[in-house]
Simulated assay, not measured.
Amino acid sequence: MRKVFLTSIIAIGIILSVSAQSEEDTNAQRYEVKVITSVESIVSSGLGRSRIISTEEERDHKKFTSSRTEDDDERNKSSRKEIRVKNFEETKLLNFFNIGGIRFQNIAANDAVISSKINTMLSQGWDLAFVNSAVESDAGEGDNNGIFITRYIFKRLKNN
């Protein structure tokens, strides 16, 4: 009796484990992801360009990926032309600086435009999943260049 009970418990555990794995596999394929990038110039005198970029094309990363090993050290030979996207949405933003220095009104304007883009994405069924930011700023004497970049990563259920 005890042996049958233990066997039943093990069988139930295996079934639950396989069921959970099957559900995870199904969930992994249920979502699509979209990345929106804002690039805001922190070039002094307002000379830079600031934009929100959103692609209208898809790319399969596998076409541009190689697996390198000690025995096979060949790199991917994809050309930049194959990777480049020509169909994308570009939304103008204002630069952080103008001739007078930092321009807080420009930052507020950019916040309004970025909020509008996020609200549009939300209204289209996308959920904001992650936000990542980075700054490459003035690196010292002779370098008046810099950007503030933010990636907004959205996800939504696929329409299968």
Rank of each mutant, 00 (worst) to 15 (best):
E24I: 13
G146A: 08
G140T: 07
S41E: 05
S67C: 03
R103V: 04
L6S: 09
N27S: 08
D25W: 12
F88N: 11
I107L: 13
S67Q: 06
E82Q: 14
R80M: 08
E141K: 13
I153A: 03
R49D: 12
I12G: 06
A28L: 10
D73H: 03
I153Q: 01
S50G: 09
A112Q: 12
Q124V: 00
N145A: 14
F104V: 05
S78E: 00
I107T: 07
T150F: 06
D127I: 07
N159M: 04
S54F: 00
D111Y: 07
L94P: 03
R51D: 10
S137C: 05
S45D: 14
I53H: 07
K63Q: 09
A109W: 02
D73R: 10
L157A: 11
N145D: 12
V35N: 08
V39H: 06
D60T: 08
R151F: 13
L157E: 14
A112L: 09
E70M: 09
A20R: 13
N87I: 01
S79Q: 04
S116A: 11
L128G: 01
S50T: 08
T37A: 10
R2F: 15
K77P: 01
N159F: 00
K117P: 00
D138A: 07
A108T: 10
E90T: 12
I14G: 03
W126V: 04
E40V: 15
I99V: 11
A139K: 12
